[in-house]
Computed example of a mutant assay.
Amino acid sequence: MTIRRGRRLGVDVGSVRVGVAVCDPDGLVATPLETVPADDGVFARIAELAVEVDAIEIVVGLPVSLNGRESHAAKAARAFAAQLKEHVGTVLVRLHDERMSTMSADSLLRSGGRSGRSRREVIDQAAATVILQDALDVERTRGTPPGETI
C-alpha cells in the first residue's frame, strides 16, 4: 500500500508535559523531537514546530482503555486536539488510538539502557514516537489515513 507523502507530528498529551515526535517526508520512520511543558504556551509551540517541519498533519494520541472505552484522559486528549486545531490553521489534526504507547515507550527506553530518571526526561517524546509510528504503519497497511480527523 502507499502512504501520503509529507512530514507529520505525533503528540502524546500529558498533564505536565507533552511529547512531540516527527517523521521523515516519506512517512517511514518517526523520531523524538521535543518535550513541551503543558502550560499556556503548549499550543503555540506545537504550531511553531508544525511550521518548522512543514507538517501535513498532527497525530494526537487518544488514550482509549483496553476494553475500548474512553476515559477522562481520552476526553482531555479530545479537548487538547480541538484547541490545537484552532492554532495550526490548515494543518490536519487527527486522533489516533494510543493504547499502550507509554508502556511500549518505557519498555523500549529500559531495554536501551535508560535509567529511571533519564527515562522520565524523554518518556513523553518516546510515547509520541510510538503513537506516530503506529499511525504511519496503519496508513501504510490500510492505504487510508488512520484515526479520526478533528
Rank of each mutant, 00 (worst) to 15 (best):
residue 16 V to Y: 10
residue 10 G to T: 12
residue 47 A to F: 15
residue 37 P to K: 01
residue 128 A to R: 03
residue 8 R to C: 14
residue 1 M to L: 07
residue 102 T to I: 02
residue 143 G to E: 06
residue 42 V to S: 04
residue 125 Q to M: 11
residue 58 I to W: 07
residue 55 A to Q: 06
residue 74 A to Y: 04
residue 43 F to Q: 00
residue 140 R to T: 12
residue 138 V to H: 13
residue 54 D to V: 09
residue 136 L to P: 10
residue 55 A to C: 10
residue 11 V to Q: 00
residue 97 D to K: 00
residue 21 A to S: 14
residue 53 V to L: 08
residue 39 D to L: 04
residue 18 V to E: 13
residue 113 G to H: 05
residue 150 I to K: 03
residue 115 S to I: 00
residue 65 S to M: 11
residue 74 A to D: 09
residue 106 D to S: 11
residue 136 L to N: 09
residue 41 G to W: 05
residue 111 S to H: 02
residue 29 V to W: 13
residue 137 D to V: 05
residue 112 G to Y: 04
residue 60 V to C: 02
residue 57 E to C: 15
residue 137 D to I: 05
residue 104 S to I: 02
residue 92 L to S: 12
residue 69 R to Y: 05
residue 48 E to A: 13
residue 110 R to Q: 11
residue 115 S to P: 06
residue 73 A to Y: 03
residue 144 T to I: 02
residue 42 V to K: 08
residue 59 V to E: 07
residue 44 A to T: 01
residue 44 A to F: 07
residue 39 D to Q: 03
residue 4 R to G: 15
residue 130 V to P: 08
residue 37 P to N: 06
residue 84 L to C: 01
residue 120 R to P: 02
residue 36 V to M: 02
residue 34 E to G: 07
residue 110 R to V: 13
residue 6 G to I: 08
residue 6 G to Q: 06
residue 63 P to F: 03
residue 77 A to M: 09
residue 7 R to K: 08
residue 4 R to E: 04
residue 59 V to H: 08
residue 59 V to M: 05
residue 36 V to K: 03
residue 54 D to E: 06
residue 79 A to P: 04
residue 92 L to Q: 08
residue 28 L to H: 14
residue 137 D to T: 15
residue 113 G to D: 12
residue 114 R to D: 12
residue 19 G to T: 07
residue 39 D to R: 09
residue 3 I to E: 03
residue 17 R to P: 00
residue 73 A to R: 14
residue 107 S to V: 01
residue 148 E to I: 11
residue 93 V to N: 04
residue 63 P to W: 03
residue 67 N to S: 12
residue 53 V to Y: 13
residue 90 T to V: 02
residue 136 L to A: 06
residue 97 D to T: 09
residue 97 D to S: 01
residue 132 L to H: 08
residue 25 P to F: 14
residue 53 V to E: 13
residue 48 E to R: 10
residue 38 A to C: 02
residue 139 E to T: 11
residue 8 R to S: 13
residue 67 N to A: 15
residue 4 R to N: 04
residue 108 L to W: 13
residue 68 G to I: 08
residue 64 V to S: 01
residue 35 T to W: 06
residue 56 I to Y: 10
residue 103 M to G: 06
residue 91 V to D: 11
residue 20 V to H: 01
residue 104 S to Q: 15
residue 24 D to W: 07
residue 114 R to E: 14
residue 140 R to S: 15
residue 132 L to C: 11
residue 65 S to P: 05
residue 94 R to C: 12
residue 67 N to L: 10
residue 76 A to E: 10
